[in-house]
């Protein structure tokens, strides 16, 4: 047990927490549009934080340097594609006429 192991543990735990938060959010949120928020955002940070943990492991196990660059590329790809995918899904749903859920009694929100 050294400092690197502890850092790996912290980042892995953080990543798992956010991945689980995204999953719970998709189950718990009341309508499609509010489900986009946990799905699109928490997964991004979950990937980032788990890849940081694996980056530390790469240094610890002395892997080839392409392992580190591939981890960074995975983060880059998720950062570009996650918002684009959630935008594409939400746009299709919006054009299909799906009405967003508003809080009961929230008159300002339902004006739109």
């Amino acid at each position: 047990m050294n400092a690197m192991d502890i850092a790996v543990g912290i980042f892995l735990a953080l990543g798992c927490f956010f991945a689980l938060t995204g999953a719970v959010g998709i189950v718990r949120m009341p309508d499609f549009f509010s489900r986009l928020h946990p799905a699109g955002k928490n997964d991004t940070l979950a990937v980032t934080s788990i890849m940081i943990a694996l980056l530390i492991r790469t240094v610890e196990y002395d892997y080839h340097w392409t392992v580190a660059t591939k981890l960074l590329l995975i983060v880059g790809i998720i950062f570009v594609t996650a918002p684009a995918a959630s935008h594409a899904i939400s746009k299709a749903a919006f054009l299909d006429g799906l009405k967003p859920w508003t809080k009961p009694g929230d008159t300002e929100a339902s004006n739109e």
Binding site: A23, V24, I26, R35, A46, V47, S86
Partner: peptide
């Protein structure tokens, strides 16, 4: 497994696509 609950329950097809996308991201991890 949690996201699969949402994929099963729906109710719209967009919810299911969103679930598939979220499962894909988790699969990458």
């Amino acid at each position: 497994c949690l996201v699969l609950i949402r994929a099963y329950r729906g109710p719209t097809s967009y919810d299911r696509i969103l679930s598939a996308n979220a499962i894909g991201t988790k699969t990458v991890i």
